[in-house]
């Protein structure tokens, strides 16, 4: 199968496409394909030219860490859980996330995510949860918090979002979810968090909800937004 990868040697050099002919089977993931290309003494591209190993980030290789977020056939996804059998067409294109600066090949710098969370004091500090007397409601709330705390900070929700540009002002779905998590676990921070939410999410989000389609953890962002909207 033809695999086309958008490559880049250094942060300040021009990106270029390079193709590879790879024997794949339908049960392989894109991470497996990248490994397969790299697991050779010499890496040869589809023109027969010797080339360098493809740089990409990976840690857990099982959809739990968010390292390998990239754009596969135009859709932002984790390489380690995107299966060949689920992809259509005769060739596969892979490129780095484009809303973050590329360091090399498929590796991007996602530091801005953390810088932004820092700006809004996104931490719980003291545990003063919103009181819920009804056990069923309390259970639902905890379930929601559990789901939100699974966020990988992988950046897929930002990549797909029509409103997120470079993180200078609009901080995206992962930020909205953290707003819910912090305010539900420490109600004394509600006012501060609501202000940040409105400024960096609420007033700009056009509710395309594509973030929910690509989230590898299936985080219910819509439910987080509903809760935040109820707060103010």
């Amino acid at each position: 199968m033809k695999i086309k990868i958008l490559r880049q040697t250094l942060p300040n050099t021009e990106p270029y496409w390079e193709g590879f002919d790879v024997d794949v089977n339908k049960d392989m993931t894109i991470a497996g394909v990248l490994d397969h290309i790299n697991y050779n003494d010499d890496i040869i591209d589809d023109t027969g030219k010797k080339t360098s190993r493809i740089r990409w980030e990976c840690s857990c290789l099982q959809g739990m860490c968010g390292s390998c977020a990239m754009v596969i056939n135009g859709i932002p996804a984790l390489a380690c859980e995107t299966m060949i059998r689920d992809l259509k067409g005769k060739e596969i294109t892979i490129r780095p996330l484009q809303k973050f600066p590329v360091i090399y090949d498929l590796v991007v710098d996602r530091s801005i995510i953390y810088e932004n969370l820092k700006k809004i004091n996104m931490f719980i500090g003291e545990y003063i949860p919103v009181e819920n007397k009804k056990p069923k409601k309390r259970e639902k709330e905890l379930e929601h918090q559990y789901e939100v705390a699974k966020c990988l900070k992988c950046g897929l929700c930002l990549e797909v979002c029509p409103n997120y540009v470079n993180g200078n002002n609009f901080f995206g779905a992962l930020f909205a979810n953290d707003c819910y998590l912090v305010s539900s676990r420490n109600q004394s921070k509600l006012t501060e968090i609501i202000q940040g939410y409105e400024e960096h999410f609420g007033k700009t989000c056009s509710k395309a909800f594509s973030c929910m389609d690509v989230c590898p953890m299936h985080i219910p962002t819509l439910a987080s937004m509903a809760k935040m909207n109820r707060y103010y």
């Binding site: 739990m64 953390y114 969370l117 820092k118 004091n121 931490f123 719980i124 500090g125 705390a149 699974k150």
Partner: peptide
């Protein structure tokens, strides 16, 4: 996903001290 939930909580605690200038993260 016990480890993940603990990491999520600790990352926020670290951030609390980052804001205060007591912890500096170097990526």
């Amino acid at each position: 996903s016990t480890g993940k939930q603990i990491v999520s909580a600790l990352v926020m605690e670290v951030r609390r001290f980052e804001v205060k200038g007591m912890i500096e993260r170097h990526f």
